[in-house]
Simulated scan of single mutants.
Amino acid sequence: MAALWLPGERIVYIGKANLGANGKRHLRKRLDEFRKFGAGVPIGHSGGRRIWQLADQDELLVGWRVTDDADAANTKTRMLADFRAHYGRRPFANMRG
């Protein structure tokens, strides 16, 4: 696991939140699911699960970029590609991408 860590890098996970079919799945809902997963609640999504192994997980900050819902997946893909091009690997908690 230590081989995945980039010393000094501030970005540890790149995720996304979509509005969903009914338009009610937004960033707050996604972050709540993320928090619940970290607390051990089975939510059916495990993106970023390595974050919960960090000693300072309770000090991490969330940043976001607003984009139209149809472009959310493309934005995440581009951000991951840019990160990988710069560092040669994904952020610590991104297991795919």
Rank of each mutant, 00 (worst) to 15 (best):
A3G: 03
A3E: 01
L4H: 11
P7Y: 11
P7F: 12
G15F: 00
K16Y: 03
A21E: 12
N22T: 12
N22Y: 02
N22I: 08
G23T: 03
H26C: 10
H26S: 09
L27I: 15
L27H: 05
L27S: 07
R28L: 02
R28S: 04
R28G: 04
R30H: 01
L31S: 04
E33M: 01
E33W: 00
E33I: 01
F34E: 00
F34R: 00
F37C: 00
F37S: 00
G38T: 01
P42C: 01
P42N: 02
G44P: 07
G44L: 10
H45I: 05
H45K: 11
H45M: 05
S46G: 02
S46H: 05
S46I: 03
G47H: 01
G47N: 03
R49I: 02
Q53V: 05
Q53I: 06
L54T: 08
A55F: 08
D56I: 12
D56R: 03
D56K: 03
D58C: 07
D58T: 12
E59V: 06
E59N: 13
L60T: 08
L61P: 03
L61F: 10
V66E: 14
T67C: 15
D68N: 13
D69E: 04
A70T: 12
A72C: 14
A73D: 15
A73S: 12
N74W: 10
R78F: 08
L80D: 08
L80M: 03
A81H: 10
D82C: 08
A85C: 06
Y87Q: 06
G88Q: 09
R89Y: 06
R90C: 11
P91L: 11
P91N: 09
P91G: 08
R96C: 06
R96F: 14
G97E: 11
